[in-house]
Design a protein around this nucleic acid. Structure first.
Lengths: 249, 249
DNA sequence: CGACTTGTTGATGTACATCAAGGTACGTGG
DNA sequence: CCACGTACCTTGATGTACATCAACAAGTCG
């Protein structure tokens, strides 16, 4: 396509996301508008990046298929992963609405994004308040996730942080159809986890080992097994003496 | 007032915030709607709290006058400050739009808030897309601040975090008319800073001491002096060897 | 009445000993 | 080659404990 977009492979009328539990049904008019608002798709291979910190993007995106993450880089090369992006999530709204991006986004798997031209967002607000409301809901919801991550980084121990993150990722994956029956494919490495939790790779590895010994989960070869959901949640949240409950950690 | 709100002391037509640089001018219709949307004011004394984690609030708020902060508490009593709230900021949008609050908000000074009934937010979206757009803008903007804080907590050293936070607070204060000529009243204690940056009070104190020795700022008796803006920014951002530049830190 | 002590509290400053996390180096296995 | 695993030593951050200082209230005495 002339604008660099891929022609659509999925008509909005048959969007697989619409059947997910956390999506409200669209009216016929809304559906038609969205369908026409969608300028095309962006297909990205694992490891590639959608937009770069400091650049402008003409489009807003919705993740249709795959895993991504948003991150920031420091001048010294350090990377902080801000959050993981799941199907249905908005991308590109964060860096205020019209300004330069203050973060980058990278694909963990091959990925399909729906692209919406930024300069027509105003139309959406003017003509479909219900959709505008949804956009705000998404923004405020992702803010809540960031709040929780901030709490993790600031106040939880490395073991708690790790337990919280893995549980959170599993639950999000389950919500979006990327996991079931306690099993998920996690398409990221320990380095990604380290960059999310603000700890070194080595320490992440050691902590992961300790967490595995609790027997609440297993993560090997990209495969995550949630064995004891409540146990993992307890490790994430409570300030119990873990060594009493799990002498091996 | 029957609903527990204070009658308005400031008519929206003369709202002092409207003259601030970062506010776009309202149309007459918008102004009239906002004025009628505002159910009243909430007056809070320093140290009191507007809403509590886990509670529901019937109102959305805009901070009209004073300083506040949002925070979360852990079962063990730990507190993480999520961000500081300045005049013009929204409060109560974060905990998704209609659900339970996932955080609390406390006043650092005596404070005046404008209260808007949550259940009429839909009206705003339906009738004033421009205002709806503004709401989204505010949400996405505060998300950007959270991104930056996350980067701080995850990847910066304690000295950098501290420099970044103080500079950020000063700049926000300046934007909102609470500071000028490099001087501001900071109505919070070292404990607040510690709870924001995820470090202990003792270590905050030591780091603050080191930062003061760089000569880029001074903070004593609630008074903050920004002495060398660029120097402080450099300490916050660059990974230079600070001891070369400021042998005393 | 006013001035001077005394006690209290909250914020800040400093000195340890202890521990969690980092960094480098060098393994393995696919 | 890259992701993961582990050992070693170093550094940064914590926690406890205690000293300082100012603000404030209560009480005492000239």
């Amino acid at each position: 396509m002339a604008n660099g977009l891929h022609p659509r492979t999925v008509p909005c009328e048959q969007c697989p996301l619409r059947t997910m539990a956390n999506f409200r049904p669209f009216t016929a008019e809304e559906l038609q508008f969205v369908s026409e608002f969608k300028a095309g798709e962006t297909h990205i291979k694992a490891g590639e990046t959608v937009f770069q910190q400091g650049s402008r993007s003409d489009y807003l995106f919705t993740l249709l298929r795959g895993w991504m993450f948003r991150y920031k880089t420091l001048p010294d090369g350090g990377r902080q992963i801000l959050n993981f992006v799941f199907p249905g999530d908005f991308l590109g709204l964060q860096g205020s609405i019209l300004d330069e991006m203050q973060h980058s986004a990278e694909a963990l798997t091959n990925v399909v994004l729906c692209a919406f031209p930024r300069d027509r967002l105003w139309d959406l607000y003017a003509r479909f308040p219900g959709l505008a409301f949804d956009v705000t809901w998404l923004a405020s919801h992702s803010e809540q996730v960031l709040d929780e991550n901030l709490l993790s980084l600031g106040r939880r121990t490395s073991l708690q942080r790790l337990a919280y993150l893995l549980l959170h990722l599993y639950l999000r994956a389950e919500e979006t159809g990327l996991a079931r029956d306690g099993k998920a494919i996690f398409p990221f490495t320990q380095q990604h986890v380290a960059d999310t939790l603000g700890m070194s790779l080595v320490h992440t590895n050691k902590t992961l080992r300790r967490l595995a010994m609790s027997g609440t989960m297993r993560w090997r070869d990209r495969t995550f097994d949630l064995i004891d959901r409540d146990g993992l949640a307890a490790l994430a949240l409570h300030e119990t003496n873990h060594r009493q409950k799990y002498p091996l950690i």
